[in-house]
């Protein structure tokens, strides 16, 4: 993947915004893979690829309920890297390689979130005396420091994903057969669909909403058959 410098910068900036939106600011859901992927696709002039990988990672996102201090992979910047990978390789090979790069980036992103929270804990622990004095400027400094660290973290995750995207095509594209590329795409798309269904069923539970889920599923199947 060789992209012009201005496109790489735009992707890093977008990935950073996406990474910061997940937890810190402003949680307006640009971190959702559907949004992150579509805009990354628009930056590359390839919205269909952005949408497709956005849909794959959006399904994987259903696996996560971000309650309390739960640990989870970070699929926003991961989707940006996935789209950059897929853009460089056409068709199913792009989908498979893009998804692979996105998964590894998502795993790395999740680890950095946990690390950042630990670093924040230590800094806040050390600043306890200043915070207990009620000094508003100390409070704001500690908080803004956390925001800036998250921005740096998101930028690092995006760059990591784009480096993987740059490596994926020459390292894997050459040795992978066409059937292998299809298998790779099948593995990730199949798991994403299953994760979407299982995650939704966890939200739905066994109560009356299960009937609504079944009704929706039946309607979706009917619409799919009718549209073929």
């Amino acid at each position: 993947m060789i992209l012009p410098l201005e496109l790489l910068i735009a992707l890093v900036v977008w990935g950073t915004f996406v990474g910061v939106d997940l937890v810190s600011l402003p949680q307006m859901m640009i971190a959702r893979p559907l949004v992150a992927g579509t805009v990354a696709g628009a930056i590359l002039g390839d919205i269909p690829t952005g949408l497709k990988l956005g849909v794959v990672f959006e399904l994987l996102q259903y696996d996560i309920l971000p309650v309390g201090a739960v640990r989870y992979p970070e699929y926003g910047p991961a989707t940006v890297a996935a789209v950059a990978t897929a853009h460089a390789s056409a068709g199913v090979l792009g989908l498979g390689l893009g998804a692979l790069v996105g998964l590894v980036t998502g795993l790395f992103g999740g680890l950095t979130i946990n690390l950042l929270r630990r670093v924040n804990s230590r800094i806040i622990h050390n600043a306890a005396a200043r915070l207990e004095s009620g000094d508003p400027s100390a409070l704001v400094r500690v908080h803004v420091g956390g925001l800036l660290r998250d921005a740096l973290r998101a930028a690092v995750v995006t760059v990591f994903g784009l480096v993987l995207a740059w490596l994926a095509r020459p390292l894997l594209g050459g040795v992978l057969s066409v059937r292998g590329a299809v298998l790779l795409a099948v593995a990730v798309v199949g798991t994403a669909l299953a994760a979407g269904a299982a995650g939704t069923l966890r939200l739905v539970g066994r109560g009356p909403n299960l009937a609504w889920f079944a009704a929706g599923l039946a309607g979706g199947i009917a619409a799919t058959i009718w549209l073929r």
Binding site: L193, G196, T200, N209, G216, L217, G219, T224
Partner: peptide, 9 residues
């Protein structure tokens, strides 16, 4: 539940 159920297929 209905919306996601319909979206999956």
């Amino acid at each position: 539940a209905f919306a996601v159920g319909a979206a999956l297929p």
